[in-house]
């Protein structure tokens, strides 16, 4: 990685840490501790299922919220506060700035997810007193969650490169919600007719398919995840992310910083 991208990425990570973004881990720790204690008292044989579902969903939601709310300001906040002027007047290319910002936030989310994953496994150990062989699929579910973070971060960055933070948040959150139901949208497209069929199918393939990246329920029921799905989801997420980041670069390269 080019050193300027690395510097911008580490500065973005430092900003998130100093702006107390990782404080969400405290809320997460409280949630997991409470859930583990409560589930141990009221559930009968479904403690593991509840802890995995709740834990992984919380990892996903906490990360998505952070990705959207930090991602939308990655570029627009720098323009608004004019901090960008002293960066881009140096030998920093605009695409390097975008790449550094993306990597910094993605790194923050991975670190955040790592600590949350430790919390999920600790809660799981607390309620079931031992790990099972099928628990390794939890790592795959966590990996898919990180792929979701990459997609949503790139989309927030994309919207941030041309719109206000508020509009970028609306767009990114709307895409996240629609993407969660992408499979349903595809099903609807298959059933519809005429123009609606084309529109629904087009929209279903344009929005990020977050439903394919959600295997939380499946791993909670100890079902394995196929290697093919892992490969497919990895390729899909990386291509989607790359396209969104390239879109952000193309827009930002032409933007006047008034």
């Amino acid at each position: 990685m080019n050193s300027r991208i690395g510097l911008i990425a580490s500065n973005t990570f430092r900003e998130a840490v100093r702006d107390r973004v990782l404080y969400n881990l405290i809320a997460f720790a409280l949630l997991m501790s409470g859930a583990a204690i409560l589930v141990g008292q009221i559930s009968i044989d479904i403690e593991r299922l509840v802890v995995i579902n709740l834990g992984l969903t919380a990892v996903s939601l906490f990360g998505i919220v952070i990705a959207i709310f930090i991602g939308i300001g990655l570029v627009s906040k720098e323009i608004e506060r004019r901090t960008l002027y002293t960066v881009l007047s140096r030998p920093v290319r605009r695409w390097e700035f975008i790449a550094g910002k993306f990597m910094g936030l993605a790194g923050t989310l991975v670190v955040n997810a790592f600590f949350m994953a430790i919390g999920v496994f600790a809660a799981l150990l607390y309620v079931s007193h031992h790990f099972q062989a099928s628990d390794r699929w939890l790592l795959v579910a966590l990996y898919f969650i990180i792929l979701q973070f990459l997609i949503i971060t790139s989309l927030a960055l994309f919207f941030s490169s041309f719109s206000s933070p508020l509009m970028a948040a609306v767009f990114a959150f709307a895409l996240f919600v629609i993407g969660t139901f992408a499979e349903d949208l595809r099903g609807f497209g298959a059933m519809a007719k005429g123009v609606v069929r084309w529109l629904a199918t087009g929209a279903a393939y344009l929005v990020p398919n977050f439903s394919a990246l959600n295997v939380i329920s499946s791993v909670a029921h100890q079902r394995p995840v196929s290697g093919q799905l892992i490969l497919y989801n990895t390729a899909y997420a990386l291509i989607y992310t790359l396209m969104a980041v390239c879109g952000a670069v193309l827009i930002f390269e032409r933007r006047n910083l008034k």
């Binding site: 050193s3 300027r4 510097l7 500065n11 430092r14 100093r18 901090t83 002027y85 007047s89 140096r90």
Partner: peptide, 24 residues
Amino acid sequence: FLPEQPYFYDYLTARELLEYYAGL
């Protein structure tokens, strides 16, 4: 370049900011 009414990353110390810019 010194912009008009400059604003910098306020979560950094002055030394960290200068080291960051020196790197860039």
